[in-house]
Nucleic acid binder design. Structure first.
Length: 565
RNA sequence: GGGAUUGUAGCUCAACUGGACAGAGCGACGGUUUCCUAAACCGUAGGUUCCGGGUUCGAUUCCCGGCAGUCCCA
């Protein structure tokens, strides 16, 4: 940041009157060129009809050299910057002392809503739900860390035709014992059986299901009570999964929450002259924007997702007045979101509406669905993760050691592995699920990062810094490895900001992995506890700062950091 | 048919939004524990960045035209 300002000032001095707000200083592509580089003299050369090296030289001549040990012009006109060791140590001290490990509180006073996970009631969560839950939760945590006030809302699929099928099935296909001890698994079974019967030729069952649905929609007390029971059981089951994944919501407002306000939204659309009749349905024509036609009221009078999302956004704006609302859903819904975002804007919505789409998860090349029979339960995946981690924990352990903490540790590692394997990819990519990929415990994996953290904790304990990572004395940069690690650590706040701006936790995951690699290499090749003072203390400080960065970063990804592995 | 999105090493992915010789992990091969935790570290091999044009001093990145996968709409 500061370096960018210095370099910008040099541009302004060299070319008075120009706009250099886009000038950026970035990390050097190769450490042999220096620590940082600026490539913007090349662009500026064109504007001023200079040859690029001359432009770079003009800038270099005006550059305030106090932080720099060396300034070179290389290649076609790159400005290569080598900072002084004292600049690095001063920045390290400042970062160590900063609140929030230097993460800028740019969201202070701003409110946002994040809508993620959103499973369907009466069904168990499966591997297809991981992405929205884990990516959404990481975005949630990252924005909170930036100082935003975040409302995390779980927009459950808790309304619709499936409840007619469920109610009918519940009454006639479950035994009394099953009804007394109802679980989501039973609801799911009852749904499958009832839906199968609804396909029978005579159509009697199907009609009965429809009748139950209509009764529910019209407020029949018995059916409403059953519906509430199904929702309650479902949420309890979801919460069991969320507890394992470290996910917490502020509200659970499902689709049903907006039932009463959809008519109002449609009326507003009509008043604004946005909606028109078409074949009995009410639609909003978005052909001009190449978004097709969005139905807001079906020909049978029912509403659909577009209406319900519009009602929902209206409610959120009235209740929270957020700066933006972020929706984390799979990429198939892109058209739908573009459509209703456009309608919302036409209706005067000023709140930023952001869709964060993520790629589809498949299994062995096939879409995940009940029909394909490849629907791996989230519970099953997490159990397997714990099992594999536990086996490794035990194999690494002294047979005589206390085993009481093993299960908890295996959970932290296993869940960390599952979450990291998803978070470390750009959300946009499709993922073909495989057990081995989802549960990777080595290399670029959650446990690699957790392990690096455990080792740094152990180092601190051996050094007598039991109370966390407390800094004492100063930093000192001696080797090239220390220098690279130090510069990398200084970039932490920037990595958090970049991850937030792109809505990609993967940016942070990538940063943490690179940082841990630099640390591991440094740790392996440089004596720390065995160094002489004052180098020993300086190195411990660097390790301490690494520990803080890693712990904070993993927390933002929702990955736990055990101190002993 | 219209649109979205993806295509990078054998496999899974990066590349800070146009920069220097395209980097990691896994897998393969070889090495490192009397030494701070070997879930680690070090090294070797592995590339026509899907293909063809264009813009640019400079393209994995931007534009045009194809091809292929996935998805949405009709």
């Amino acid at each position: 940041m500061e370096l960018t300002a210095i370099v910008r000032a040099a541009f302004e001095a060299a070319f008075p009157g120009g706009d250099f707000s886009a000038v950026r200083v970035v990390g050097a592509t190769d450490s042999k060129f220096g620590d940082f580089q600026c490539n913007d003299a090349l662009k500026c050369a064109k504007l001023y009809h200079l040859n690029p090296r001359q432009a770079a030289e003009k800038v270099a001549a005006k550059l305030d050299r106090t932080c720099f040990e060396k300034v070179d012009i290389a290649g076609p006109g790159f400005l290569n910057l080598t900072v002084s060791a004292s600049w690095i140590t001063e920045r390290l001290l400042r970062l160590s002392a900063a609140d929030h490990v230097g993460i800028p509180q740019k969201g202070r006073g701003k409110k946002i809503v994040i809508d993620y996970s959103s499973p369907n009631a009466a069904k168990q969560m499966h591997i297809g739900h991981i992405r929205s839950t884990v990516i959404g939760n990481a975005i949630d945590r990252i924005f909170r860390a930036l100082g935003y006030e975040v409302v995390a809302d779980n927009h459950l699929g808790d309304w619709g035709t499936q409840f007619g099928i469920l109610i009918k099935g519940y009454r006639e296909l479950l035994t009394e014992a099953e009804r007394a001890h109802l679980t989501v698994a039973l609801l799911e079974k009852c749904y499958v059986l009832s839906a199968a019967k609804a396909k029978e030729e005579d159509g009697v069952w199907k009609e009965a299901c429809r009748a139950e649905l209509v009764k529910l929609q019209q407020g029949d007390e018995g059916n409403l009570a059953l519906w509430r029971k199904f929702i309650e059981i479902s949420i309890a089951e979801f919460d069991r999964m969320y507890a394992k994944l470290g996910v917490k919501f502020d509200t659970y407002r499902g689709e049903s929450y907006y039932n009463g306000t959809m008519g109002e939204v449609v009326a507003e659309l009509q008043q604004a002259g946005l909606a028109e009749e078409s074949e009995g349905a009410l639609v909003v024509n978005l052909e001009q924007e190449k978004l097709g036609v969005a139905i807001v009221r079906k020909s049978d009078g029912g509403y659909n997702y577009t209406t319900s999302d519009l009602a929902c956004v209206k409610n959120r704006i009235e209740e929270y007045d957020p700066e933006r609302i972020i929706y984390v859903t799979d990429a198939r819904q892109q058209l739908h979101f573009r459509q209703w975002f456009s309608i919302a804007r036409k209706m005067g919505c000023k709140t930023q509406l952001i869709h964060v789409p993520f790629g589809l998860m498949s299994y062995q090349g096939k879409a995940i669905s009940t029909r394909e029979g490849n629907l791996i339960k989230l519970d099953e995946l997490l159990a397997e993760a714990v099992k594999r981690s536990l086996a490794i924990v035990e194999s690494r352990q002294d047979p005589a050691a206390d085993k009481s903490g093993n299960l908890r540790l295996a959970e932290q590692i296993g869940y960390g592995a599952v979450k990291y394997s998803d978070l470390s990819h750009d959300p946009a990519t499709d993922i073909d699920f495989s057990w081995d990929k989802a549960l990777a415990l080595e290399g670029n994996s959650g446990p690699y990062l957790q392990y690096a953290y455990a080792r740094v904790c152990s180092l601190m304990e051996k050094a007598g810094r039991v109370d966390g990572m407390g800094l004492t004395g100063t930093f000192e940069i001696v080797t090239a490895q220390e220098r690279r690690l130090a510069l990398q650590l200084l970039e932490f706040p920037g990595a958090v900001v970049r991850a937030a701006e792109a809505y990609k936790p993967s940016v942070l995951a990538e940063y943490l992995f690179q940082t841990a690699q630099l640390y591991s290499s440094f740790y392996q090749n440089s004596p720390i506890l065995k160094s002489d003072e004052p180098l020993r203390n300086a190195r411990l400080n660097l390790c301490a700062l690494f520990g803080e960065v890693l712990r904070t970063g993993l927390e933002l990804l929702g990955i736990e950091t055990p101190r002993h592995i």
